[in-house]
């Protein structure tokens, strides 16, 4: 395994484009090192991107959104004074991953590019409408987060392309997001099911809604119909029932050691109700 620590994204991209065999980018390393240790993936080329300037920065964008450098960690997100006020669901989803120790290293972009169906931060980023910026041999482009994973362990990034930053849109007034996952313990598990919802309201009435589910299909599922079910209504029992049905209907999970099809489908509905209520309360002004 060769290790490189480039100083610019261009250099990193060129290294990756020219590399033979398996290439991995190293940010937090909480997936790369586990795969290395478990003999699942031993990269031939490992490109550490943390020395590139700006990769640790969390900055406001001009339009009032947020830009997170590619090496920003979960701990840095949780500790940021303002990010969690705008996007509590995204920050909490990231914070659920692993231990305090893992939080010190793990990054949401790594979580996304590792392309696990159960990645906690991904449904939250999708619900928030986050966009991933990449650069590659053909220049820079922005990809909506939901279009990044292509299947378990696979992304739509091309050879030589490297993620540079994540952009969260402006929160805007009267909006709220939330993420919950189900795990057997209270900590340290991989999500059996995850659910994120991002809402805006006017008064009691929902004006926009985005929902995404994790660990119920090969990639995170965007439940587009959630908007139809919620927009123009308050979050009453009927809306919650509709949302539950929608969540259950959107699942295409597998039976595995972490959960059955039946349990995952059922629990997706339960989480959808609970997450919707939190997001709704937040949108109406409840503090995260």
């Amino acid at each position: 395994m060769q290790y490189f620590k480039p100083a610019t994204f261009e250099e990193a991209s060129a290294l990756a484009a020219g590399a033979e065999g398996i290439t991995r980018f190293l940010a937090g390393g909480t997936d790369v090192l586990v795969q290395l240790r478990s003999d699942l993936v031993t990269p031939d080329v490992l490109i550490d991107i943390k020395a590139i300037p700006g990769t640790h920065d969390i900055t406001r964008t001009e339009d009032g959104g947020w830009r997170l450098g590619v090496a920003v960690t979960g701990a840095e997100m949780s500790e940021h004074p303002d990010l969690g006020r705008d996007w509590p669901g995204v920050v909490e989803a990231m914070d659920l991953i692993g231990s305090t120790q893992v939080q010190g290293r793990a990054t949401p972009i790594g979580n996304l590019c590792n392309a696990s169906p159960a990645a906690d931060s991904v449904p939250a980023m999708i619900a928030a409408g986050a966009v991933l910026s990449v650069v590659g041999p053909d220049g820079a482009r922005d990809i909506p987060v939901e279009e990044v994973p292509a299947g378990p362990g696979k992304t739509t990034l091309k050879k030589g392309e490297i993620a540079t930053a994540l952009t969260l849109p402006p929160r805007g007034a009267q909006g709220g997001d939330a993420y919950l996952r189900f795990i057997p313990r209270t900590e340290m598990d991989i999500a059996v099911v995850g659910c994120a919802i991002n809402l805006t309201v006017e008064g009691e009435v929902i004006t926009s809604a985005r929902m995404a589910l994790g660990a119920v299909a090969p990639t995170a599922v965007v439940v587009h119909a959630a908007a139809d079910a919620l927009v123009g209504r308050t979050l009453d029992d009927a809306a919650l029932k509709a949302l539950t049905d929608l969540a259950e209907a959107s699942c295409n999970p597998i039976d595995d050691k972490r959960g059955t099809v039946k349990f995952r489908t059922h629990t997706a509905g339960v989480l959808a109700r609970r997450v919707a209520q939190i997001a709704y309360d937040r949108a109406k002004g409840a503090k995260a």
């Binding site: 057997p184 313990r185 209270t186 900590e187 598990d189 050691k257």
Partner: peptide, 9 residues
Amino acid sequence: LDYRIPVAS
């Protein structure tokens, strides 16, 4: 990770 012994919480 998947052999789940109790954690502090």
